[in-house]
């Protein structure tokens, strides 16, 4: 077990080195994802600044909580952009044109390779920007920070970043079974667009089922914020862990079945 972890870590290090060498050759648009994504979150910040200049609360949340929510979603998105998005996003094309053969024949886990082979250091400033937004939210919300709160918050952000990754892999793994996963990726995009703008506390009824269970973007930034503001209930925390565990099992199962189902340049 220890040997396997060591081997995988060495592989991750090699993949990161290769990616950095590649980026040095193709410098065009290095900071592109940073500019585009930071613009999205800054506009969102402006939108809620404007709304809160007209109302004092949205549901039970004040301005500080909403800024924290935007900062947290931005942080999870930044982790996604820096580490795995660009690798995972290419899965459907690799399945369709048969490039997955290459990953299956190489030593090491194909998913591990896909996850880390296209890290994007150009998005690192997004992490700092998210940190600034989170600090602003903490100040605005008058939250007193303790080491326990910081550790708990980091834990929840890490869990939700993994959940984000699992959902991305799961959605793209459908390409193993159907000709194109384009429609599911569009659904993902629509769900993400909505949940980036709306905290989980506004969902009810069928919307809650969709965004808490099926496409759990509704809980991704909500739970870390609720933890930081002391609003997270035990049932809420258990639900967050349960969803992350369920998606881990589901994604692992679908991925393994997909690899078995894959018959080279089948499409």
């Amino acid at each position: 077990m220890r040997g396997r972890i060591k081997r995988n870590l060495r592989m991750v290090r090699v993949l990161i080195n290769l990616r950095l060498q590649n980026l040095m050759m193709f410098r065009l648009g290095f900071f592109g994802p940073f500019f585009v994504d930071s613009c999205v979150f800054l506009v969102q910040l402006c939108v809620f600044e404007v709304i809160y200049s007209n109302v004092d609360r949205i549901g039970t949340w004040g301005k500080g909580q909403m800024i924290l929510y935007i900062g947290t979603f931005s942080m999870i998105n930044a982790i996604n952009m820096v580490i795995y998005f660009f690798g995972i996003n290419g899965i459907p094309d690799k399945i369709k044109n048969g490039d997955m053969d290459l990953y299956l024949t190489k030593p090491g886990s194909p998913l591990l390779r896909l996850t880390f082979e296209r890290i994007n250091p150009g998005s690192v400033p997004l992490l700092f920007l998210s940190g600034v937004i989170i600090s602003y939210g903490i100040k605005e919300g008058g939250i007193k920070i303790t080491p326990i709160l910081v550790l708990g918050y980091v834990f929840w952000v890490a869990v939700m970043a993994v959940l984000y990754y699992l959902v991305e892999v799961l959605i793209r793994s459908f390409t193993f079974f159907i000709l194109t996963s384009g429609n599911t990726i569009i659904l993902e995009e629509a769900g993400l667009t909505l949940c980036m703008q709306l905290p989980g506390i506004v969902f009810y009824g069928v919307y809650k089922v969709i965004f808490y269970v099926i496409l759990p973007y509704g809980i991704m930034a909500t739970i870390p914020v609720q933890f930081l503001t002391g609003e997270l209930t035990l049932s809420g925390a258990l639900w967050g862990i349960l969803v992350a565990a369920a998606f881990t099992i589901l994604t692992a199962f679908v991925w393994k079945q997909g690899i078995r189902h894959y018959n080279s340049a089948s499409s």
Partner: peptide, 29 residues
């Protein structure tokens, strides 16, 4: 179809956000 889906997202955003805000008041701006 994609455009229609995104218009639904926009209306859903408005419905959930403003539905929550107007739950406690009759008028905003």
């Amino acid at each position: 179809v994609i455009q229609i889906l995104f218009s639904l997202t926009k209306i859903l955003f408005a419905s959930l956000l403003w539905g929550t805000i107007f739950a406690g008041r009759d008028e905003v701006a």
